[in-house]
Design a protein around this nucleic acid. Structure first.
Length: 259
DNA sequence: ATGGTTGCGAAGCAA
């Protein structure tokens, strides 16, 4: 089973690229983030015509997450379910082919120390509670998405240049590590120990072509699932323009598992 | 080098 995640930075703007990517990458499950759509505007029919069931959680202008699956899609849950869940439309979960798949879009955090930064850390704490209250780390769980944290210095193009900014701070990395401590493994990093592998590049200043990126889009798998992983990839090709279709600032990431 | 680019929506904000 191929499980993929992609922050598309507006599904309306990216629908042609997403359909193209589904055509050649052939994911069994595809998690999307930043659809920027309401549920009513989500193009479920376009995906069903390609053989995918889908679940979307969005309220229009910001955020918005989805799970697409061609191996079944059941027991959909939208949102964190926590009492605040104040940064809504950042989580949707569904059971696909025996795997509990969660599409997640972490808050950006903006500036270290800002209210948005503290809200980001709180969101991670709520996400850990969400997992712990619902799932068994001994089961088959895949948390996929734009987590807006680069797990380690190896995951950024220049730790010095990014020092003091969000995505690399100790507190954010600790929040991510605590999430993983519940029982999730960073399968891509396990398979690819080398530096220089990123999933996001700023639109500005030619960052993509200068290899100035960060690895912030992750597929985190429970041990039972991670042990079945056979292959993983960041598809840098999908960060490029496709004819008239502009790219997202993120590339898709996928993991193949034997299930 | 405090710039640069994109999306949404129609100015300025978020990323």
């Amino acid at each position: 089973m191929r499980i993929a995640t992609w922050n598309v930075n507006s599904l309306k703007a990216r629908i042609a690229w997403v359909e193209e990517w589904i055509g050649y990458a052939s994911p069994d499950v595809l998690c999307l983030q930043e659809t920027k759509l309401s549920d009513a505007a989500f193009p479920a029919f376009a995906f069903s015509s390609l053989g995918y069931e889908s679940a979307h959680h969005g309220d229009g202008r910001w955020n918005g997450v989805a799970v697409l699956s061609r191996v079944g899609l059941a027991d959909v849950e939208r949102g964190l379910g926590s009492k605040s869940d104040s940064l809504g439309c950042r989580l949707v979960a569904a059971t696909c082919g025996g795997v509990r798949v969660i599409s997640a879009y972490a808050p950006n955090g903006r500036e270290v120390g800002s209210e948005h930064y503290h809200a980001k850390l709180e969101w991670f704490a709520e996400l850990r509670d969400h997992l712990a209250s619902r799932y068994d780390p001994g089961g088959m769980v895949a948390l996929c998405g734009d987590l807006n944290v680069a797990p380690a210095d190896i995951d950024v193009w220049d730790p010095g240049a990014l020092s003091g900014s969000t995505h690399v701070s100790d507190a954010e990395r600790l929040a991510l590590a605590e999430l993983e401590a519940w029982g999730l493994e960073d399968v891509f990093r396990q398979q690819h120990p080398e530096p220089g592998l990123y999933s996001w590049w700023d639109y500005r200043d030619g960052a993509f072509h200068r290899h100035r990126g960060m690895r912030i889009d992750l597929v985190l798998m429970s041990r039972a699932l991670a042990g079945r992983a056979r292959f993983s990839l960041v598809d840098r090709n999908a960060r490029k323009a496709l004819g008239e279709a502009k790219p997202s600032d993120h590339a898709p990431v996928f993991v193949d598992v034997d299930v």
